[in-house]
Nucleic acid binder design. Structure first.
Length: 290
DNA sequence: CACCATGTTCCTTG
DNA sequence: CCAAGGAACATGGT
């Protein structure tokens, strides 16, 4: 679920439901997800605080709260890791097996669930300081992308996963963007021509923007017993069948024909992650349109 | 049992 | 100091 588009859709969903709510109590069931914040510190800081805002930065959710007791502003940082979810439930709803943190609110409760517990909900803000450009914002230009990448010998696919360069692109959309740009994932970043950089810049934005738009159209599923509030879910069963076909053009399609040229989509491993690409459309020399 | 999984951080090596 | 590679984290699906 969680790359930039999924987090963006989640933030848009949660923000209006969360802002204005007050935290009555904090229930930490897996303290690892708070690290390096302690249970005591989180509990003391959040009790009585009210949600004032929510925004996205890369794949992070940034919650702003106000504490009336201490008259101070609080920043709470969330990350979904690989399997994290955040949603609102009625206060009497049963908790999922892997609920990591539960915040009881003045109306309902906020649940952070994460089967693998790679995610975070913490007062530690340092991760945000290391992040690079927001690909959908004005500061992201072909020139800045070229500058950020021109001294790296790393394969471009690996470079796209580096959150200090372009923040928010993950393993799925890195493969998808390179496919659309007609660029081989194996090319050393510094060897990209300016035309390819421009094409890649455009593809990154296009792929992310389209995913946000698709995610915004998918109805959210709800956990709990028929009570309809808040479980964000990106399951294929919720998507129209015709849309599922178009969701990814190369990701997880190894061995299937390329929708553009019919060649067999291939999988390779880079930096211990799977990369999917079309050997026909993504040559090492030039972009699709020369 | 084997391998795979939408992510990040830490440690080692060069 | 930096770049790059790999293991670790933890659980579940196929």
């Amino acid at each position: 679920m969680p790359e930039l588009p999924e987090v963006e859709v989640l933030v848009r969903h949660l923000a209006p439901r969360l802002v204005g709510r007050t935290i009555l109590s904090i229930n930490v069931r897996r303290s690892r997800v708070l690290a390096p914040t302690s249970i005591r510190s989180l509990t003391r800081t959040l009790r009585g605080a009210r949600f004032a805002g929510l925004r996205r930065r890369a794949k992070y959710l940034v919650f702003n709260l106000h504490s009336p007791n201490r008259d101070s502003e609080i920043t709470l940082v969330g990350h979904l890791g690989m399997t994290g979810r955040m949603y609102l439930l009625p206060c009497d709803a049963p908790l999922p097996k892997h609920a990591a943190v539960v915040l009881d609110l003045d109306r309902g409760k906020f649940v952070f669930e994460d089967t693998r517990y790679f995610g975070r909900l913490t007062l530690d803000v340092t991760a945000l300081e290391k992040l690079g450009m927001e690909p959908l914002e004005a500061g992201f230009t072909p020139e800045r992308l070229a500058e950020a990448v021109k001294r790296s010998a790393q394969p471009i696919k690996v470079k796209l996963l580096d959150q200090s360069v372009v923040a928010g692109v993950g393993n799925i959309y890195a493969s998808e963007a390179l496919f659309r740009a007609g660029i081989s994932p194996k090319i050393p970043a510094q060897k990209l021509k300016s035309g390819q950089i421009e094409s890649l810049w455009h593809s990154i934005r296009e792929v992310l923007q389209e995913a946000i738009e698709r995610g915004s159209r998918i109805p959210l599923a709800y956990s709990g017993n028929g009570t309809k509030d808040g479980l964000f879910y990106f399951g294929r069963e919720l998507e129209a069948p015709d849309e599922y076909e178009e969701r990814f053009r190369v990701y997880d399609r190894a061995g299937k024909p390329c929708l553009e040229c019919g060649a067999m989509i291939k999988r390779l491993v880079q930096a211990a992650r799977s990369t999917f690409f079309c050997p026909g459309c993504q040559r090492s020399r030039r972009s699709k349109f020369g």
